[in-house]
Structure formats: C-alpha cells, structure tokens
Amino acid sequence: MNDIISAIILGIIEGLTEFLPVSSTGHLILAGHLLGFEGDAATTFKIVIQLGAVLAVFVLYWKRYLDMLKGLLAFNFSAARKLNAIHLIIAMVPALIVYLIFKDVIKQELFGPAPVLIGLILGGILLIIGARANRKVTTEHTDDITYKQAFGIGLFQCLALWPGFSRSGSTIAGGMLLGTSQRAAADFTFMISVPVMLGATILDMYDNRELLTSSNLMLFLVGFITAFIVAMIAVVTFLNLIKRLKLEWFAIYRFVLAAVFYIFLM
C-alpha cells in the first residue's frame, strides 16, 4: 500500500512539473529519495509515468501530429519552413544517439540526489542565459522554425539527459539562443515531447523488461494514470504560463529547491 501511495504522489508531481522548465525527472528523483522509493524498478517507473503526462500533449496537439504523419507518409515536405515531421526527427536524433551511447552511465551516475542538485543549478543558469542573451528574434511562430534551428534545439535537448537540467528548460533556452521567441520555443518543446518520451519509454521498458512483473505493473499503471489525469488538468494553464512568465522566475525556483534539498541531504 505504501508503494501505491508513493506512486500516486510521484504521478501528481510528474503531471505538475513535466511542462515547466524545472525538471520533472529531478523532482521525481528527489521525491523518490524522500519517500524511499528508489532502485532499478523506481528508475523505470519514473520514466514510464512521464509518458502519461506527455500523452496530455498528444491529446492537445493530435490534429497537428495527424497532419505531420500524413505529410510524412506522402513524402510531402515542400513547405520547408512550415513545421513538419522532419523538424521533429531532426530535433530527436542528437539526444537519441547520446542516450544510446551513454544510457548505462547516465542511469548509474546521474540518477541520484547529488547530480540532480547540480543539474538544477546548471539548468537554472542556462535559463538565465537564454532569457538575457538578447538575441535577435528571427522566428516568432512555431511554423517558422527552420531545420537548422530544430537541429540546434535537438543539441540543447541532449543536456536534459542529465536529470535536473530539464528537457523543456534546455530546449526553450536553447531555442531562444538560436533566435526563436519564447512562445515558439515552448510550442516546439511540447511538440517534440511526445515522440522523444515515447521513444525513451519504449527503450527503457525493453532494457528493463524483467522488472515489468505483475506487482510492478500495478505501480506503473497507478503512476501512469495519475500523471495523465493531473497533466490533463494542468497542461493548458502551464502552456500559457511558460509562454509568458520570464524564465528567470523558474531559475530562482530551481536555485531555492536545490538549496533546500542540499540542506536536507547534508
């Protein structure tokens, strides 16, 4: 029963933090440490429930994904400056390659409280840099994102493989450094979240298929459903919030969170 309660708590945390540049994985690792919910099964659980939150984005953008799929199947990419499946693929490739090469090191060395605190601080610094760089905005809307910018955002997404950095934080700050508006970077971040997290979840579940026992399956299901429901409630509010609120506020929150947990861990 205690594990079920932990699964619900972690599902709520995931649903609330997945769409903000504060690192949902970092929050899950720190919360899991407090709850004593750790180990290989817990690591896989935290990745599986992220898919539940990300599905909320799919529900929100399903028409756009359908249009992209139709264009991909028809090999119709004539509108090079209109967001299409190629943009998403280009943005996914860098992180996928890095993950496949270093996944064992990432899980063994970075999925712990101390690395997360470092990631929170470094990710917060990146947010401040992205917000204050004053780069000329060449891309106001998501459909104007170029293939070059998509690839650059994909490179920044590699930083999110370090828990605590935040996938949305890295890609939004990276997009702004590459000339996109905060709104365009946020929209693009949410768009690529579905294929990225779907791929990560499938790979992780395959690597840890021996952990998908009937007892663990119940925990995964409870956390997945909780994250999906909470994310569906929060997604619209947070989408608007992340497009309008200055990134520095999220950076301050990250610094405070890191300080509080550092004091607790010490």
Rank of each mutant, 00 (worst) to 15 (best):
I9R: 00
T139Y: 02
L83A: 03
G36P: 09
I202A: 14
A85E: 05
R254L: 07
L69R: 05
W162E: 03
D104G: 06
E109R: 10
G119R: 02
M68G: 06
R135P: 01
I145Y: 10
L60E: 05
L198N: 00
F165D: 02
I128R: 03
R254E: 12
A56S: 15
T142P: 07
D104I: 05
A7D: 06
M232E: 14
G175W: 01
G152D: 03
G152Q: 03
I172W: 04
I29L: 01
L161W: 13
A185Q: 03
G11V: 11
C158A: 09
G175F: 03
F255P: 08
G11Q: 08
D3P: 02
K103M: 04
F58Y: 11
G15V: 00
A91F: 13
I101R: 01
G174W: 01
L161R: 04
P94K: 09
L127D: 13
V116Y: 02
N240K: 15
A185R: 09
L28N: 01
I172H: 08
M68I: 04
M266L: 14
A131S: 13
G164V: 03
F77S: 11
D204W: 06
L247Q: 10
I5M: 12
W162P: 12
F250H: 15
S78L: 12
D67A: 07
L35N: 15
G26I: 08
L245A: 14
I97K: 02
F220Y: 14
G130R: 05
A200D: 12
K136N: 10
H87S: 10
L127S: 14
A234M: 06
L20T: 09
D67G: 11
L241F: 15
I242A: 00
I8N: 03
I263P: 08
I12G: 08
F58P: 02
K243P: 04
K46W: 12
F190Q: 01
V222L: 07
Y206E: 06
N240P: 04
L100G: 09
I233Q: 06
L177K: 09
G112R: 15
V93Q: 05
R135E: 01
Y253E: 01
L239K: 08
S168H: 14
M92H: 14
L73I: 04
V230C: 00
L66M: 05
L66V: 03
F250A: 11
A259D: 13
H27A: 03
A234N: 07
K136Y: 06
V235S: 04
Y61T: 13
I89M: 13
I229A: 10
F37R: 10
I252M: 09
F261V: 09
M191T: 13
L35V: 12
F238K: 04
G199W: 07
Y206R: 11
I145A: 05
I202W: 01
I8V: 15
A91L: 02
I202D: 02
S78I: 08
F224L: 14
F228M: 08
N84S: 14
R209D: 11
G32L: 01
V105C: 07
A131F: 01
I90C: 13
Q157D: 04
G175L: 06
S193W: 00
R135A: 02
L212T: 00
L100M: 07
W62G: 11
F45A: 04
V93C: 07
I128K: 07
V236A: 07
F75I: 14
I125C: 07
E210S: 08
L161S: 06
L221P: 09
R183Y: 04
I49S: 09
A173M: 01
F264P: 03
I106T: 15
S170V: 02
Q149S: 09
